[in-house]
Design a protein around this nucleic acid. Structure first.
Length: 411
DNA sequence: CCTCCACAGGAAGCGCAGGAGT
DNA sequence: ACTCCTGCGCTTCCTGTGGAGG
């Protein structure tokens, strides 16, 4: 009867993936290609903690997907296990500030990690602070606190807790706290209080982006863990690497491409992942990004975008600011809305450009003035579809479709 | 060579919503 | 319950500008 079990297991098991989760952004792999020197740096800076000394605070800077988080988490897990073996007392606490972007929640997380129970609300930050200190003070432990993506905290709330955290050691008896700050933006360092800057930046580390070749190695090693043997066509990984290398060498992007390509292949019941799946994955990721961007756009931003689509739709390849503004005004008239000024529309167009759904460049047409030439770079069909999610645009969305795509009311 | 178009885009400030501190 | 603060979307007012046509 075991052949039945065989059949069931085969049905349960993915044909493509062996372990899909190993391609997800928060997975920390056991092997990090091309980050040896960074790993060594971080490890040697943290190593004194094994002897019970406080390691230097650290500030790590690098673009997204350059392995900052992975390196730090990898080194910390190794550090902790080697500390356990030698009977030392090292404890790491990881907080991603992006999703806990208030001082209270950051402190609550730290408190939670050291075993202080923190109510959802009701305490002042100062109170949690002193509770943490009381709890931690005599435990003769080196705490290494990682604050990932601190830009979010600093931008929204300032560097007050950072300052407090860097000075907390003077209030501790046998324990010590070291901080690791991780950020994507260099500008952040300048916007910090000089006192925070000097103490957090005792050591500064910069992670360079990966090139296509390095991305390929990363993908290879991860694919080995994540995919079943032989399901990847030979040109899949090079393609993912090349596409991601174009975007400042973002490894997370590369892994996303690979994972989504696998998912697409699986969904369509294929037994292999091909070049074609990767290209579709790229489109799908791009579409999702665009939909996200549009969803969070303010109403007039959507209207301006719709206007651009309308103007560029009827056989025209580009639009000018003036044309867009005219079209925008007629849209607002139909909806009975107020219109914003041209200055604002101009600003909105610049924002849309930055978000990457359109591209514009300023040209002079001599006698006929100076203007911005605007082209739609994203897929107009996808844009309109995303726009149609807004109920405020409900009654004109069909008109937009008609004007932009002509008679053939596709979709 | 000069003009003048059709905007670009900086600066300052306003009103509002929402969150924090008290 | 109240003020205070901040970020955002926006307006007003402004100065700046590449080049076709006179």
């Amino acid at each position: 009867m075991d052949y039945l079990r065989d059949i069931f297991e085969k049905a349960l098991k993915s044909r493509i993936f062996k372990a899909r989760e190993k391609l997800l952004p928060d997975y920390v792999p056991g092997f990090l290609p091309h980050r040896d020197s960074e790993i060594r740096r971080v490890a040697s800076i943290l190593a004194p903690s094994l002897r019970g000394e406080k390691p230097s605070n650290m500030f790590i800077y690098g673009l997204t997907g350059t392995g900052k988080t992975a390196v730090v988490r990898y080194v910390l897990s190794r550090l902790e296990s080697s500390s356990r073996e030698s009977g030392g007392r090292v404890k790491s606490i990881y907080v991603n500030v992006r999703y806990r972007d208030t001082p209270y929640r950051v402190l609550a997380d730290i408190g939670e990690a050291v075993g202080v129970s923190v109510p959802f609300t009701g305490l002042s930050t100062g109170e949690i602070f002193s509770r943490i200190i009381r709890r931690v003070s005599d435990s003769a432990t080196i705490y290494i606190i990682v604050l990932d993506e601190i830009d979010f905290l600093v931008k929204k709330r300032g560097d007050d807790i950072l300052y407090k955290l860097t000075r907390v050691n003077s209030e501790l008896r046998s324990s010590k706290i070291a901080l690791i700050g991780i950020t994507n933006s260099v500008d952040l360092i300048d916007s910090l209080d000089p006192r925070v800057k000097s103490s957090l930046g005792e050591v500064e580390l910069i992670f360079p982006p990966y090139n296509a070749e390095q991305l390929r190695d990363i993908l290879e090693s991860r694919a080995l863990e994540a995919f079943n043997e032989g399901v990847l066509d030979s040109d899949v990984i090079p393609l993912c690497a090349a596409l991601a290398a174009r975007e400042h060498g973002d490894a997370r992007r590369a892994l996303d491409l690979l994972r989504v390509a696998g998912e697409i292949s699986e969904r369509s019941g294929d037994s292999k992942v091909t070049r074609d799946h990767v290209l579709r994955a790229r489109d799908e990721i791009e579409r999702d990004r665009v939909v996200d961007v549009i969803r969070t756009l303010p109403l007039h931003g959507k209207l301006v975008l719709a206007s651009i689509i309308i103007v560029t739709g009827g056989g025209r390849t580009y639009a000018t600011t003036g044309e867009v503004y005219e079209s925008y005004k007629s849209l607002t008239r139909r909806l009975g809305l107020e219109t914003v000024t041209m200055r604002r529309v101009s600003g909105i167009i610049a924002e849309l450009d930055m978000l990457g759904v359109i591209s514009g460049r300023v040209v002079s047409r001599g006698r006929y003035g100076k203007t911005r030439v605007i082209e739609v770079t994203a897929d107009p069909q996808a844009l309109v579809k995303a726009l149609s999610e807004d109920i405020a645009l409900e009654e004109i969305i069909e008109d937009i479709r008609r004007e932009a795509f002509g008679k053939r009311s596709s979709m």
